[in-house]
Amino acid sequence: MKILVPVKRVIDYNVKARVRADGSGVDLSNVKMSMNPFDEIAVEEAIRLKERGAASEVIVVSVGVRQAAETLRTALAMGADRAILVVAADDVHQDIEPLAVAKILKAVVDQEQPRLVIAGKQAIDNDMNATGQMLAALLGWGQATFASKLEVEGEVARVTREVDGGLQTIEVRLPAIVTADLRLNEPRYASLPNIMKAKKKPLEEKTAADLGVDVSPRLEVVGVREPEGRSAGIKVGSVDELVTKLKEAGVI
């Protein structure tokens, strides 16, 4: 069984995003970029399935600018077998929407025929939480989103999902899409020898046009602004003072 893992290159989660002065977006020039944290978890899960003998090959795919090759190398160093880079943009500030990414991934799935796609639950830049669900719709596959536990058994995947009320466990028929939540696993660090080895693993490059997908956005970004600021209030010296202030404010 092949597993496909889409990985996105995003602003590092430790970096505070700054809005560009012209209001066109968030400044991404000279900013540290990393693999989307949820995608590291997805890659880790796929590698573990392979280590357990439940999968034969782990293929990672990234859609975006050419620099996403670095993100794919990271996934290869973690243990993925090969990578596909779909170049769809030439400016780092151009984000490809989930619908277009899902169409590109569908084309890759049609070629590669994986039985399982493990995506991240959400990209921490656009906070869409949509691509996995959209890909499932385009393929007509079942979906198990926000997974905190995954077991593959024969023709089904059994998935525990993090939902508003607690946890839900479902079984989804393969082929299927799973999206990874934070508690699915703790991703490994790539060791130096594995980073060296990853340089020799296959990385195939395609374009969105090769796959026949139009990536022009459906949502035009009219503007991006800073959120309303919130300034620091006061420090109180004791619990008594705090309780008095809260009573004055009418909140207790």
Partner: peptide, 23 residues
């Protein structure tokens, strides 16, 4: 935008070939 809707609505949008506008 509950977890149930976040699960369902992008699937609906893709079935209709439109983008979802989340949150």
């Amino acid at each position: 935008a509950t977890t149930d809707a976040k699960n369902v609505m992008p699937r609906v949008a893709a079935m209709l070939d439109v983008m979802v506008i989340p949150e």
